[in-house]
Design a protein around this nucleic acid. Structure first.
Lengths: 107, 107
DNA sequence: ATAGCTATTTGACAATGCAAGGTAGCTTGC
DNA sequence: GCAAGCTACCTTGCATTGTCAAATAGCTAT
């Protein structure tokens, strides 16, 4: 898959996933991988950035099967950002799809 | 608009526009601007890259209202690339939209 | 000649995905 | 005990690609 398509969309997908319920990083990678191919080295820096920007808060929990997990919880600011990003994504992908259709029609 | 969304999609839009008919750079910028906000400094380097990659051929034509225009014409390789990119875009945007829907439903 | 439009090009910059590698806890089998 | 393999987290350096700002230049109208 063209990795360029992912730019910007991954932030949306991460925010959306964490809003549903608190998740830890590794789990989040697996969740998003169900939809698109994505690398751990992409997600962890993104989680760090979104936490720095106060869209997430974090806490640690012990795991029954490995090292402790860092859970991410979305903040009010994070929800606002998610809503904005989702609107922008809708507008963007509608614009692109309509444009592609128009280019099919007229010469 | 989130400028990151554009990465990768612009190449698709440019290929699609030039396949419809030969266009010159400035005209192409105006055409794509009907759909999404885009900068000249984004399009010209992209045209150069796609020409280097043999997806486009170019020729000059005098203009009745300004300096000569460089027209871009798509090659067979360009059409193949366009078809591939368009398939990838469809798959990608379907995956993302389905993922966003799923995240709405289950908790 | 001055302003404004058309048209192309370039260079420095910023955002972000990825490969690769590192650290560390836990479980299983020898 | 200890080596292998999985889970889990994190970082560094790199490549790609869009953005901004500016330079160049032809043409038209005032």
């Amino acid at each position: 898959m063209n990795s360029q398509f992912k730019k910007g969309v991954l932030e949306l997908m991460v925010l959306k996933t964490v809003r549903r319920r608190d998740v830890y990083g590794y789990e989040l990678v697996e969740t998003i991988r169900q939809a698109i191919d994505v690398n751990e080295g992409t997600i962890y820096p993104l989680l760090k950035r979104l936490t720095n920007e106060r869209y997430f808060e974090t806490y640690l929990r012990e795991s029954p099967e490995g090292p402790p997990r860092k859970y991410y919880h979305i903040t009010a600011a994070g929800i606002l950002q998610l809503d904005a990003l989702e609107r922008e994504w809708d507008e963007f992908h509608n614009s692109v799809c309509e444009f592609l259709k128009e280019m099919n029609e007229r010469g």
